[in-house]
Amino acid sequence: MRERRYDMPADLVALLGPHRHGGHDPTWQRTGDGAIWMTSRTPDGPGTLRVTRHGGQAWGAGATWLLDSLPGLVGADDDVSGFVVHHEVLKGFGVPRIGRSGLVFEALVPAVLEQKVVGREAWRAWRHLLRKYGTQAPGPAPEGMKVMPEPEVWRQIPAWDWHRAGAEAVRARTIATAAWHAAKLEAAADSASLDRLLRALPGIGVWTSAEVRQRCFGDADAVSVGDFHLAKIVGWALTGEKADDAEMMRLLEPYRGHRHRACVLVGLTGLRPPARGPRLSARDYRSF
C-alpha cells in the first residue's frame, strides 16, 4: 500500500462522480466512511485508489501512478482563469472544477456503451462485461470491484457475450476497433489531438469524443453535443425554454473555453424542463 497526503476539495463526489457509470459500477464505489474507491488500468498496470478528504491510498502495480495523478484527478491543476458567469441563474454556485484521469481507453469504453441508449441499458452492459472480463481489484477493495480489462481483451470478446451484455454489434465493433488503436489514443498530446484521433475511428462522433475528453483531459470546453437531455436542460435553465443543440451552443458562446464547465454549472442549479410522457425504458433483447 502507498499513501499520499493531500488536502482535497470539499465535494469529492461531484469531482469523481463523472468517472462512475451507474449505481453498481464495479470500478467505482463509495463506502460508509465517505471514502471513494476507484480502480484503473494505468500505464504501469492495474491499481486501486481510495480517496478521502485527507488524500489517497493506492494498491497494485499502478499505485504510484495513481497517487502521482491524484491532484489532476481532483482538479487541482484545472485552469479556471477567464471563466466569468454571464447568467444570473448561474451565480452563487462557485466555479466547478474539472478533474482529469489521464486514461483514454478507460473513458472511451463506457462512453461508447452509452451511445444512443438510456443509462440503465449502458450501465448493465458495463457491469456484465467488467464482472466477466475484468480482473480482481488489488488491495482491500470493497467486494465485487474489478479493474477493466486490457484493450486486447476487448478485441477478443465473442459476439455472444456482447449480446448477453445487451450491447448490439455496432457498439461492440466500435469498441473492438478502438482497442486496436488504444496505444495511439493514449499517446495523444492534448485534447484537440485526441479529438482528431477519436473522430477518425468508425462509430465515434462529437458526443463520444467530448465525453472522453472531459474525463481524460479535463477539457472544460468539450460540450457533449448530441446528448438527449443536455440541450433541453441548458436552454431551460438559461432561458426558460427548451433548446436544440444549435441554440445551446449559441447560449454557451459567452463561455467559450469553458463551455463544458458552464454545463456543469447548469447541472448544479437543479433546473430541468418538466417531464412529459413515460420515461424511456432500457431495451433487453438478450437470450440466455
Rank of each mutant, 00 (worst) to 15 (best):
A159M: 03
A182R: 13
W123K: 02
H181C: 00
K184W: 01
P158H: 08
A189Q: 11
E152C: 02
W162L: 09
I157L: 04
K132R: 15
D161H: 15
A167Y: 04
L129P: 05
P140S: 08
W160S: 10
A167P: 03
A182L: 04
P142Y: 08
A188S: 15
Q156S: 15
P138Q: 06
A122R: 06
K132G: 01
I157V: 15
P151V: 01
I157Q: 08
A182D: 11
A187C: 01
A183V: 11
W162A: 10
A125K: 04
P149C: 04
A188G: 04
K184L: 03
A179H: 05
P140T: 08
A165N: 02
R171A: 10
L130D: 08
T174I: 09
H128P: 00
A169F: 07
G139M: 02
A172P: 01
L185N: 10
A188L: 09
G166N: 05
R155S: 03
A182K: 07
M148T: 03
G139F: 02
R164Y: 01
G134Y: 09
E152P: 00
A178S: 14
P142H: 12
A159H: 10
P138D: 03
W180R: 14
R127W: 06
P151K: 00
V170W: 14
A137W: 13
M145N: 11
D161S: 09
A179Q: 07
A172I: 07
P142I: 11
W180E: 15
E168Q: 13
A178H: 10
A122N: 03
H128E: 10
R173H: 12
P140Q: 11
H181N: 02
R120H: 03
E186D: 05
W160V: 11
A122H: 05
G144S: 07
A176W: 05
W180P: 00
A172K: 07
G139N: 03
Q136T: 14
W126G: 04
A176G: 11
A169H: 12
